[in-house]
Computed example of a mutant assay.
Amino acid sequence: MTKNRFQAKATGTGLGNLLTRSLQFSGSPTDLPAPVESPQSLPAELLQPNPRQPRRYFDPAALQQLAQSIGQQGVLQPLMVRPLEDGRYEIVYGERRWRAAQQAGLTTVPVLIRALSPEEVDIISAVENLQREDLNRYDEVTAKLNLVAHRCGVSVDAAVVLLKHLRSDPESAPEQVEALKQLFGELGREQWTSFVTNGLPALQLPVALIEAVQSGRLDYSKAVLISRAPQRHHADLLRRVLVEDLTHADLRIAIAQLKPELQTEPVSEQLRKNISVRRLSKLSEARRVRAFKLMEELNDLLK
């Protein structure tokens, strides 16, 4: 059984309370139903996955193990679904159980039916998935980012920009910073500032590395290390990690051995990586002034 990865707090501000209030984040006053409600039974063929749900990968071996358990005991925890106009139902959460139930040969599954908007579905699905210990880091980041977007009333892309801006200049919007502190405090495990620094880079990983992380074959921290090497080496480094089972120390050594080649990386690419508000803010006043003058000169030359 998949365990809950967060502990609800006695004060009522934990993840359990966040799940109860998740609909309100989208502007809806509706609360989630009490867990004592009796589920209904629906044909499994009438259900369909939510294409926007955070969890993108289902381990075949784990799914088969769950199917065997369901074949013996049935589906113990009901799914949540919402009705669609064509008479079918979209899964809000419980897609893994639905897949396993079909593998086990079940024709019906227990469900809780809720009339929800797509936005409400996204919020509930994100919160529910974040409770799972087996959620990989990439899907965890996308789920949290989805909650941030809804909480701040912006798109996901705009949420990324907003988070980076608030990280560098928190005084520009203290109310939004406080909202982020509350949200991540309820989710637990990391602060919003750490999420910006250590989580958002997951969105920039190459597709091959993302797929390896989602499948559970590649540790997220190793994926970040590989991504920092020149792109032409990614495939080989990934192969070595998977085949040779390289440790973090081994991987760092392998990347360090590529250092002479790193110097051949185009200067423009090095500048793109090095020029940022955060890096410039760490310079002394004199060096920062010189850096801005050099950038102005470069801009004039390019014109």
Rank of each mutant, 00 (worst) to 15 (best):
Q24E: 15
I91M: 06
A179F: 00
T107R: 13
A173F: 05
A202F: 05
E85F: 09
F25H: 12
N17S: 15
H150W: 11
R97F: 07
V111D: 04
G185F: 02
T264R: 13
A44S: 13
Q182E: 13
A115C: 10
V127F: 04
G188F: 04
M80R: 10
T107Q: 15
N136E: 13
E128V: 07
N50S: 09
V148D: 08
G12L: 04
V160M: 01
D122I: 02
R21Q: 13
R137F: 13
K222R: 14
L135Y: 08
A115H: 15
S38P: 00
Q102D: 01
F184D: 03
S227N: 15
T142S: 12
Q131F: 09
Q72M: 13
T11W: 03
A115M: 10
K144S: 15
D219I: 09
L298T: 10
L271W: 12
H234F: 06
G188V: 10
R5T: 05
S38Q: 09
Q24S: 12
K273L: 12
D139L: 01
I123Y: 01
V127I: 14
G105W: 08
L47G: 03
V161Y: 00
K273M: 07
K181E: 15
L162H: 06
D245A: 14
H233G: 00
S117L: 06
K282H: 10
L209Q: 07
H150D: 04
V127G: 01
L246N: 06
K293L: 08
S125W: 05
R278W: 04
A229G: 06
K303Y: 09
F6H: 12
R97T: 00
V36K: 01
V213N: 05
E85H: 09
L237T: 07
T20N: 14
F25D: 09
Q65P: 00
E186G: 15
L251T: 03
N129L: 07
T264A: 14
E140N: 05
Q73C: 00
R96M: 14
P29L: 02
D236I: 03
V109G: 06
S41I: 06
Q204R: 14
S215E: 05
A202I: 00
L294G: 00
L225Y: 03
V161T: 11
A159E: 03
